[in-house]
Amino acid sequence: MYKILTKKNIAPETFYMEIEAPKVAKSAKPGHFIMVKADEQAERIPLTVCDVDTKKGSVTIIFKAVGASTELLAGFDEGDSYLDFAGPLGNETELLSEDLEDLKTKKIMFIAGGIGAAPVHPQIKWLYENGIKPDVILGARSKDNLILLSEIEKMADNFYTVTDDGSYGRKALVTEVLEDLIVKEKKHYDLVITIGPLLMMKFVCLVTKKHDVKTIVSLNTLMVCGMGMCGACRATINNETKFTCVDGPEFDGHQVDFDEILNRQSIYKDEEKEKLYQFAHSEQEFKNRRK
């Protein structure tokens, strides 16, 4: 059992949970993810490791309750426990294997959309702790949905925010800001790292491809096992099939077939709707499971 030490509702439907998992905390690095299964009947869900506290032996996850399974996760409270929590999985971020001195000479830009701020956070933090301040564009639907704003702002060199409705920062898409920075302000970037909704990553990659800037994306495909034994997570990278859980989750964004992944996200659309319907119609059963 993996105890929930802290639970915070940090934005609409968005939850911050600190989970007691000392073995995972000890070995997790930026870029890794975990598989969590709330209770006996639950699905296994991949979530990025957002932070670790090795002293406390805890791992922080942040997720948005958007479907039946994440709603179930969100239904658990401080002091409750999740049944299974396995990790760290996937490869640590490519940044970690690079030469630090070399990295210091490079201009790095992070672009995060919505909940994507959570997975970029440990990477920015790692750079910051090693004396590197990247530029960051943070985007969300509205002001309420901008998460980790102050945490990330203080570690960024240049910091830009956008919202779809203009309730905070510029009313624009992250790609518009990026395009302006490169074209109008003649800024040079050696590396862009973008994490967020698939469509956003796809369009960021189109912009960076045009300007020939190396771009890393982190793919959140469907997963069942998270450790290379099912192939549910497969994606086409540079015309080759890869398992995002063991070969990724980070890939060169210019080699990713985004449309295929977008299609594959919808495989269980009908089944998912059915489950939400079931939950809605047996509120009591759902409540019972939250404990």
Binding site: Q41, E43, R44, V224, C225, G231, A232, R264
Partner: peptide, 26 residues
């Protein structure tokens, strides 16, 4: 969409018990 490895298909059904209505994995 609609192509699965046998491992994925069987894991969903056996390990995750997708054949039982009260289990969440589709």
């Amino acid at each position: 969409n609609g192509v699965f490895s046998a491992n994925e298909f069987l894991t969903r059904v056996n390990l995750m018990k997708a054949y039982k209505k009260e289990y969440d994995t589709p």
